[in-house]
Amino acid sequence: MPVQTHVDLVNQFLLSAVDSVATVEKIARTPEALNEALLKEIADEQFVLLSQPDDIDKELFSLFEKNEKVITYPTGEQLKTIRTGITDSFCAVAKTGSVCVSVNKYLTSAISMLTRKHIVVVDSRTIVPRPADLFSENYLEGKGLSKSFSFITGPSATADMGPLVRGVHGPGQIHIIVLD
C-alpha cells in the first residue's frame, strides 16, 4: 500500500468526515484562530459547555475560555439542559472520519453525549489511517491501547422508526475543527 503523507491523511479525513454527515473545517493552530472558529459556531447560543482540555494543549483554548458564554464547571442542571458542548479529542481516523473522544476524569465524554450539538477539536498530527491503528503500539505511542474512549463517526442515528433519522440519544449535529 502506498505510504500516506500527513497532507494525504488530513485531506482524506476531511472528506470522510463530510461523508459521515459531520461538518468540518481546518484552521491554524493558534488560540486566535480557534477562538474565532468556535465563536462563529456558537453564535446563536446563549451558553455552551466546554470540557477541560486534556488531549489538546490548554493554551489553545485560553482565549476562547474567557468568553462569557462558556461554562467549564457546569452544575447538574446546566449539564442537563445546555444544548451545545465543546470537547477535545485525542485522535481522528482518516478512513472513516471518526474522532476519538476520551473517557477521562473531566466532563469530556459526558458533554459529548448529553448535548444536541457537539463541537470537537482535533489535532491534525493525531490523525491515523484506519480504526485498527488505535489498537497498535505503532500509532500515537500506543495511546489508544491505554484508555477508555469512543470513536464518534457522525451524528447519532437510528433506522428503528422506519426511515433513517439523525439525532437520537446523542448529538444530532457534530462539527469538527481540525488544527493544522
Partner: peptide, 29 residues
C-alpha cells in the same frame, strides 16, 4: 482492530458504527 470495521460492515453496512465504545470500567470519569 480486526473486528470493529468487519462488524459494522457486516451488520448495519456502516464503515464504523456511529459510536464504537472502548471501555475499561469502572470508568474514571
Amino acid at each position: 482492530g480486526t473486528f470493529i470495521e468487519l462488524l459494522a460492515a457486516s451488520g448495519t453496512g456502516q464503515q464504523l458504527t456511529t459510536y464504537t465504545n472502548i471501555l475499561e470500567p469502572p470508568l474514571n470519569l
